[in-house]
Simulated scan of single mutants.
Amino acid sequence: MTHSDFLKSLPSGRRAALTARYPGQGLWHLAGHMGAILGTGGAIAAAIPGWPLLLPVQGVLIVFLFTLQHECTHRTPFASDRLCDWVGATIGALILNPFTWFRYFHFAHHRHTNQPGDPELDSRKPETRAEWLWHVSGLPLWWGSARLIWRLATGREHPAYLPERVRARAGREARVLLAVYALAVLSLIWSDAVLWLWLIPVLLGQPFLRLYLLAEHGDCPRVSDMFANTRTTFTTAMVRFLAWNMPYHVEHHVMPNVPFDRLPALHRLMRDHLQVTAPGYLAFSRAYLARRR
């Protein structure tokens, strides 16, 4: 069965139940995620014994907000579209990923997943162990994000997937981000809070997000069937919480309008049809590296 066959077989009533948005689910999940960030940040700020060990934890908590921003592009995590857009834009400022641009980048990824036209394929996946280390470091990502924001701000970024009607808005957003980052740098003159609560943590946390994201489509066949070109990774409840259930990634690609909290239910319906899975992120990384020299 292909993903198209699965969708055709799904009764309309069940489809409606899966795509319904409930006001409280996303808000409670966001409260838990932000509570963890604030609690860890508070411990760092208070310089409790061993606080440097919390820096990568804080970084992981912050950079994995990307998975919520990703959901906000689909306007699924909250009942309010406006709240989805506001949260997505705020996260974009924290992780250098401008939200307006990312929405259209991501829509193109869904239209052409692992096929010609998928903008994710413009960034080549690591093919050697040395390339893997460079990729996982996160340094290419930060440099690419900085260049992207500058090009958007100066009106020089014109990808085919970014409609003309939104380019001015994307440029304004990028200029706001540049102003925010300039203020953050200036704040270092009188306080090192930004350095220890944000900048250093996200640098330390980004490698974990790189490893996570590589599993979504890395080494998947270049075919149009979502059951084959995308990977679901079986992992712990903690990782699923942190990643807003996006380890159920085949499920998300087959029905991107299903909110994060309904993905486990969707998984139960399609698990027998999944073609590409991994029994954890460590297992995926080992297998990925075993195919490379």
Rank of each mutant, 00 (worst) to 15 (best):
residue 129 R to K: 14
residue 129 R to H: 08
residue 131 E to F: 09
residue 132 W to H: 13
residue 134 W to I: 13
residue 134 W to D: 14
residue 136 V to M: 11
residue 137 S to F: 06
residue 137 S to A: 01
residue 137 S to H: 06
residue 140 P to C: 07
residue 140 P to F: 12
residue 142 W to C: 01
residue 142 W to I: 07
residue 145 S to C: 13
residue 149 I to L: 02
residue 153 A to H: 08
residue 154 T to Y: 02
residue 157 E to R: 09
residue 162 L to E: 09
residue 165 R to F: 08
residue 167 R to K: 07
residue 168 A to K: 13
residue 170 A to K: 09
residue 171 G to A: 03
residue 174 A to I: 03
residue 176 V to L: 15
residue 176 V to K: 11
residue 177 L to K: 08
residue 179 A to K: 02
residue 179 A to M: 11
residue 188 L to V: 07
residue 191 S to M: 02
residue 193 A to F: 03
residue 194 V to N: 11
residue 195 L to E: 04
residue 197 L to F: 02
residue 199 L to I: 11
residue 200 I to R: 05
residue 202 V to W: 04
residue 203 L to N: 05
residue 203 L to D: 04
residue 206 Q to K: 15
residue 206 Q to E: 12
residue 206 Q to I: 13
residue 207 P to V: 01
residue 209 L to R: 08
residue 211 L to E: 13
residue 216 E to Y: 09
residue 221 P to E: 06
residue 224 S to E: 14
residue 226 M to P: 00
residue 231 R to F: 02
residue 233 T to R: 05
residue 235 T to I: 01
residue 235 T to R: 04
residue 236 T to D: 04
residue 238 M to S: 14
residue 243 A to F: 04
residue 244 W to M: 03
residue 248 Y to S: 04
residue 249 H to T: 03
residue 256 P to F: 04
residue 257 N to C: 11
residue 257 N to Y: 12
residue 259 P to D: 00
residue 264 P to Q: 09
